[in-house]
Simulated scan of single mutants.
Amino acid sequence: MMQIEFFKNKLMDTVVWLIVILMTLCCLLPLLNTLAISFSNNSAANANQVGILPVGFTLSSYKKLLEDNQFWRSAWISVLRVVLGTGLNMLMMILLAYPLSKSKNRFASRDIYMKLVIFAMLFNGGLIPGYIIVSKLHLLNTIWALVLPGAVPVFNVILLMNFMKGLPEALEEAAVIDGASEWTILTRVVLPISKPGLATVALFCIVNHWNDYFQGLIYMRTPSKYPLQTYIQQLTIDVSQIADPQQLIYFMTISTRTLNAAKIVVATVPLLVIYPFLQRYFVTGIVIGAVKE
């Protein structure tokens, strides 16, 4: 009987591992194919001859991206946007999620503000009113046009609020007995033990700011102010406009497909660098923040 149970457990473990490996391959193979295409030559990419290894290895697509000064300028704008935007997001989320995590006994108007938060998550003014507001505030073509419109990510506020609601009340009660103010409780008690939740919503904010290209497209009037994603989204190759024979030969090794693959790789690398530092908090933060008792 024990041998049968042991066999069943081993069989289930094997099935689970096979499913995990299959899902991993489904996610990994397209990434490897994109990476291989970015290092392949024009003809091989256009003929769909590239698998998970490059065909006709070339760095022409990356040279096209990296040799352009606008690439580095846009990269700096994106980094600045991530720093300013994420910092502002975290400040606004903490100041909103902390009072909303309290009961009505401690925050009498909680339900009113909570309804406003839910309403803001479900409905918004739309693209044209948003553009008019940014224009009237004279924020067009500035970094603040990329940061301020999304200063309060409501969905992340709700995640962080639910996380804070799950923290032990005894810690706050002990701080109150010691004479701590609400500000002291927030900064000295709540925030230090909220690292998983904070890291989770911070990762969401970083990804959102880094990957967004549309705001740069509508709020930036000059290409020199484009963030990185907007720049690479607009980057195209027009061989007919190239007169220099050497330049023509160089650009003939690049296709739109290889260049797009290089864009994806370059845009993904910074997030791959950041994610390992936040990954250990991610599972705990998202599970606790998603559960409501």
Results as ranks from 00 to 15, higher is better:
6 F>N: 14
6 F>R: 15
15 V>M: 10
17 W>T: 13
17 W>A: 10
19 I>P: 07
35 L>E: 14
35 L>S: 12
41 N>F: 01
41 N>C: 10
50 V>K: 00
58 T>G: 05
59 L>M: 14
62 Y>M: 11
73 R>Y: 06
79 V>Y: 00
79 V>D: 08
93 M>L: 13
96 L>F: 13
106 R>A: 06
106 R>D: 15
106 R>L: 15
113 Y>H: 05
114 M>R: 03
119 F>A: 12
119 F>S: 09
120 A>S: 14
122 L>N: 08
125 G>S: 10
128 I>N: 08
131 Y>E: 04
138 H>K: 06
138 H>C: 00
140 L>M: 02
141 N>L: 03
146 L>A: 06
148 L>E: 13
148 L>P: 02
150 G>V: 07
156 N>L: 04
158 I>Y: 00
159 L>R: 01
161 M>G: 02
164 M>E: 12
166 G>A: 13
169 E>S: 06
172 E>S: 08
179 G>S: 12
182 E>W: 12
182 E>S: 14
189 V>S: 05
196 P>L: 09
196 P>T: 09
203 L>R: 04
217 L>V: 08
225 K>T: 04
231 Y>L: 04
234 Q>L: 05
238 D>G: 01
239 V>I: 14
247 Q>R: 02
247 Q>T: 00
250 Y>M: 07
255 S>W: 00
257 R>F: 10
259 L>R: 02
260 N>G: 10
266 V>P: 04
267 A>S: 13
272 L>T: 12
273 V>M: 09
276 P>R: 02
283 V>N: 03
283 V>E: 12
284 T>I: 02
286 I>Q: 01
288 I>P: 05
290 A>W: 02
291 V>E: 01
